[in-house]
Design a protein around this nucleic acid. Structure first.
Lengths: 151, 151
DNA sequence: CTGTGTGCAAACATTTTGCAAGCAG
DNA sequence: CTGCTTGCAAAATGTTTGCACACAG
């Protein structure tokens, strides 16, 4: 939940993006942005859409959700990640870089960051003459809670 | 290409799996296994199917490819990976653990392994009381070749 | 007003499933 | 023979697109 910006700022940033691209500020886009900001950290287009329908009176088409998400992704305001079996998910994009630990039992996603690993990755890339733009690191396994429950 | 086992061994392993599960050894399954072994390191069900149709006289249904792949995945003989935009891919499963560097321009996949990173990952997991079963690490960027070509 | 945005339904792409016929054991 | 396999087509998912109307600027 530790968002690096508050909603106001995020919204302003969005408006700025819209202005910049001659796009329009609509009720639907606001609703979606709101939902992204206040909803879970990780979500699929599907689940976001469902959530919007529960929470707000608006009925927003799934197509609009997809369209808005790709707009936001394009502008770097959300990030998409592939979680293997669990499919593609998005996450709110204004946090520092971090990686994920995914519990294959309950689906919980734990975020973490390790500067040392980052450095090593960069080193490896360099040794292959590879110019890094991004990276993904996911550790799969069973979270502490499920381990306790499981046994 | 550096397979850790030769085809014979891989095939035997497959037969063993089949026997163990009371499954049958069919022409189709052999053809698919052969293709997996001799085809590119990374492939999608789609592309594997296409390749089979080109290379062999058999005409194997796409459904059979999917079914065989999930059987093999279940038995650990192939591994599936999500490559973000490029979709889900499989890879031949009898190699040592390694990670991937993906060129976002030409799609080339470079494999690498760094023991130090592995160790750190394990350390991070432990610190969260997380029991690792597996992990994924992908570095995205532009490969040396594309960098040269690009400019 | 003008051109972008939206909802809807149709179109797609990918993967799964039901079924009758085929074939391994 | 028996029951697992297969190919085919239909179904189920997930995502994108075309279109006429709605609406922000």
């Amino acid at each position: 939940m530790n968002k690096a910006v508050d909603y106001e700022t995020y919204l302003d940033q969005f408006k700025e993006v819209l202005r910049k691209n001659n796009l329009k500020y609509t009720k639907q886009r606001e609703t979606i942005l709101d939902a992204i900001y206040h909803y879970d950290t990780h979500f699929s287009p599907e689940s976001l859409h469902k959530k919007i329908q529960e929470l707000s009176e608006e009925k927003i088409g799934i197509a609009t959700v997809y369209r808005t998400l790709s707009l936001l992704e394009h502008e770097g305001m959300v990030t998409s990640i592939s979680f293997g079996v669990n499919g593609k998910k998005y996450e709110f994009g204004e946090k520092e870089h971090h990686d994920h630990m995914i519990c294959d039992q309950c689906g919980t996603i734990i975020e973490f960051h390790d500067e040392q690993i980052e450095k090593l990755q960069e080193k490896v890339a360099k040794s292959h003459n590879f110019k890094t733009t991004d990276h993904i690191m996911q550790i799969h396994g069973i979270c502490a809670e499920c381990q306790a429950k499981g046994k």
